[in-house]
């Protein structure tokens, strides 16, 4: 942690950046909170641990930019998925790569507080301790121990790029691509189902949606100034949480982020009704990978899958 703080102080002092976006300690045991650091003294607020859930890069895009001042150069602390979002913005011309300074941090996966709440079965967890591969949860009158992997985000469990593929500074030594044998298991299980089972699953899952759009609003890849669901002239879909409209919303959003989703899991964490949002986004990711050999946010010099055309691409979905 001190190494991170020192690095941030150094680039602030050298005026290499005039703002650094990172994480600070939050008010709840499993939530870090975004902090905006402008001075060397403030850099002491920075932390990095497994509570640093947020993908902070969405603060960089024009429409989601909450920053009221015009900063010339912004430093941002990135996990693997976060750095992939920056690459996405760069290839999609949302930011210039040279306008941001990326400080990579070694990521061991981040906590999914919904999983923790579920394990605690309604009791409130007030503290935790990491003990090797286990996590010990403490509440008012209980203590229980679980394997650490049971409380990590699903995205982290299949993450092939835990350390930033793209960075300017790295705290420690970055690992290269990690091989995950069953990265698409949830998709494969889904594909094995019959068409009817898949349709029933989609209907059942999305019937729980309350259409608050938290998934879209936290998504770093969703940065349209006006989303199709918000347009009312013409109005594309009904506004009530009627299941057919909710399905249209989710499936179209999936298509809009095809080849653009970096699987940071922000949508899953933000959903207040715990929808299974990842099956479809991983399904689309797998399709894009198989058809176009493309994974979002890895190579800053590669054109996005949906923005280029190659004659020898598989076309069976059109011709067959």
């Amino acid at each position: 942690m001190q190494q991170l703080i020192n690095q941030v102080k150094k680039i602030l002092k050298a005026k290499e950046v005039d703002l650094v976006i990172g994480w600070g300690k939050g008010s709840l045991p499993f939530s870090a909170t975004p902090v905006f650091i402008e001075t060397e003294e403030d850099a002491d607020k920075l932390i990095f641990d497994q509570t640093c859930r947020n993908n902070l890069t969405s603060y960089l895009t024009k429409d989601k930019r909450r920053l009221t001042k015009a900063y010339e150069k912004i430093g941002i602390i990135v996990k693997g998925c976060d750095s992939r979002s920056v690459v996405l913005y760069a290839v999609e011309n949302q930011i210039k790569r040279e306008d941001v300074v990326l400080i990579g941090v070694p990521c061991q996966g981040v906590f999914e507080k919904k999983k923790i709440a579920k394990l605690a079965e309604g009791k409130e967890v007030l503290e935790y301790k990491i003990n090797g591969d286990n996590i010990i949860l403490n509440g008012r009158d209980f203590e229980s121990k679980y394997p650490l992997k049971d409380v990590l985000c699903d995205s982290c469990l299949t993450c092939q790029y835990p350390d930033a593929p793209e960075y300017d500074f790295f705290i420690g030594t970055p690992r290269k691509e990690v091989s995950i044998p069953e990265a698409y298991k949830i998709v494969e299980d889904f594909e094995k189902k019959s068409a009817e089972e898949r349709w029933n699953y989609i209907k059942e899952e999305y019937s729980k949606c309350i259409r608050c759009y938290a998934c879209r609003n936290v998504c770093p890849s969703c940065y349209c100034p006006e989303c199709f669901v918000d347009q009312n002239d013409p109005q594309w879909i009904g506004k009530t949480p009627e299941v057919t409209d909710s399905i249209i919303f989710h499936l179209i959003r999936n298509l809009h982020i095809a080849g653009r989703c970096v699987d940071c899991g922000a949508c899953v964490s933000a959903c207040p009704v715990d929808l299974d949002l990842r099956v479809m986004s991983k399904k689309v990711e797998k399709e894009i990978k198989e058809r176009f050999d493309y994974l979002a946010g890895i190579d800053i010099n590669e054109k996005p899958a949906m923005a280029t055309y190659c004659e020898n691409e598989k076309q069976d979905f059109i011709m067959g």
């Binding site: 909170t33 975004p34 902090v35 905006f36 969405s58 603060y59 989601k64 909450r66 920053l67 009221t68 309350i210 608050c212 759009y213 938290a214 609003n217 936290v218 933000a270 207040p272």
Partner: peptide, 12 residues
């Protein structure tokens, strides 16, 4: 408001 992502979950 700096860190708010306007997700609206709080209001729901």
């Amino acid at each position: 408001s700096g860190k708010c992502v306007n997700c609206g979950a709080c209001t729901f």
